[in-house]
Simulated assay, not measured.
Amino acid sequence: MNGKMDRRGFFATFVKMAGVAVIAPTVLNTVFGSEAHAQKKRGAAPEAAPAAKSGGMPFVDPNDSVAKAVKYVEDHKKAPEAKGNHCVTCGFYGKKDATSGTCTIFAGKLVKADGWCASWNKKA
Rank of each mutant, 00 (worst) to 15 (best):
M5Q: 04
M5H: 02
D6A: 14
D6N: 14
R7S: 04
F10Y: 13
F10N: 00
A12H: 14
F14I: 02
V15K: 06
K16H: 03
M17P: 00
G19T: 00
A21P: 01
A21C: 09
V22G: 00
I23G: 02
A24D: 03
T26V: 08
T26G: 04
V27L: 01
V27I: 08
N29S: 00
N29A: 02
T30V: 06
T30K: 11
G33D: 05
G33I: 10
E35S: 09
A36W: 08
A36I: 09
A38S: 06
Q39F: 08
Q39G: 08
K40M: 15
K41G: 00
K41Y: 12
R42K: 09
A44N: 07
P46D: 15
P46F: 13
A51H: 15
A51P: 15
G56W: 09
M57C: 05
V60Y: 09
D61W: 08
P62T: 12
N63W: 05
D64E: 12
S65C: 07
A67S: 03
K68N: 12
K68W: 08
V70M: 02
K71P: 01
Y72D: 00
V73I: 08
D75E: 10
H76E: 08
K78L: 09
E81V: 05
E81R: 02
E81W: 06
A82F: 13
G84W: 06
G84K: 05
H86G: 09
H86Y: 09
C87A: 10
C90F: 03
G91I: 06
G91W: 07
Y93L: 07
Y93A: 12
Y93E: 03
Y93V: 08
G94P: 04
K95P: 11
K96Q: 10
D97V: 05
T102Q: 13
T104C: 13
T104N: 15
A107F: 11
G108A: 03
K109P: 10
L110E: 09
A113V: 01
A113I: 01
D114E: 14
D114H: 06
D114F: 02
G115I: 04
G115E: 02
C117Q: 04
C117P: 10
A118Y: 11
A118G: 07
N121D: 11
N121Y: 02
K122D: 10
K123R: 15
K123A: 14
